[in-house]
């Protein structure tokens, strides 16, 4: 069975929603069990008292990436068929900065806020409500942002192409960087006073 299964037509599309629900359960469980339903735990990464976000995020990214690379190498999966978000240079950076601002105020990101909602965090419910309002505002004001939103389109660009290196080299460096960050995080955590939350 060569993946990705649905685009290759191995699994009929009628299964789509069931699969979505099951994968979502796994996603939600992993987030909540790691402590992402607590905004103060999440914010620990920025103040140095709890690096759970950094650890989970980068472990997840390099795990999935390694899996994809090995499956592609073994011929079990076609990496070139995976969807790549188009890279609109300005829009991605500005969007990221706005999200960072929202992150610092709200203490969640959309995925984690939903797990917060699931366990009854009222602040997470307000954050999720805010998401809907934010998307609504953006859509209503879209004519104002349209130029920026659509400028500098590089298509489904890969980071290693932009840096002019081979994909395998970048993947290796990313793994090394992640491990180095984990080591650094443990070091910082020891120095910073514990915060009770």
């Amino acid at each position: 069975m060569v993946g990705p299964l649905i685009p290759m037509g191995v699994i009929p599309e009628t299964w789509n929603n069931v699969i979505a629900l099951l994968l979502g359960v796994g996603f939600g469980f992993a987030l909540e069990a790691s402590g992402f339903s607590s905004s103060r735990k999440i914010m620990g990464t920025f103040f140095g008292y709890d690096f759970v976000v950094l650890r989970v995020f980068f472990t997840a990214a390099i795990t999935a990436m390694t899996g994809i690379f090995y499956f592609d190498y073994m011929g079990w999966m076609d990496m070139s068929m995976l969807y790549i978000n188009p890279y609109y240079v300005m829009s991605a950076i500005i969007g990221g900065i706005i999200m960072g601002f929202g992150f610092a105020l709200g203490g969640f990101c959309p995925g984690t806020s939903f797990t917060g909602v699931a366990i009854g965090k009222i602040d997470a419910m307000f954050f999720s409500g805010g998401l809907f309002i934010g998307v609504f505002i953006f859509s209503e004001l879209y004519p104002l942002f349209q130029g920026l939103y659509n400028s500098h389109n590089l298509g489904g660009a890969k980071i290693y192409d932009l840096l002019g290196m081979r994909d395998t080299v970048f993947a290796f460096l990313l793994i090394v960087a992640a491990v180095a960050m984990f080591y650094g995080a443990a070091f910082v955590e020891k120095k910073v006073n514990k915060v009770e939350y």
Binding site: I62, T66, M79, V169, A171, F172, I175, V179, F182, A186
Partner: peptide, 25 residues
């Protein structure tokens, strides 16, 4: 430093070295 973490780090870096030697597509 916890020995188990060193082992995990070793595994992921070994996998990374494996990726490094994958042939160009």
């Amino acid at each position: 430093m916890n020995k188990r973490y060193l082992l995990l780090a070793g595994i992921i870096i070994a996998l990374g070295v494996g990726i490094l030697f994958m042939p160009a597509k």
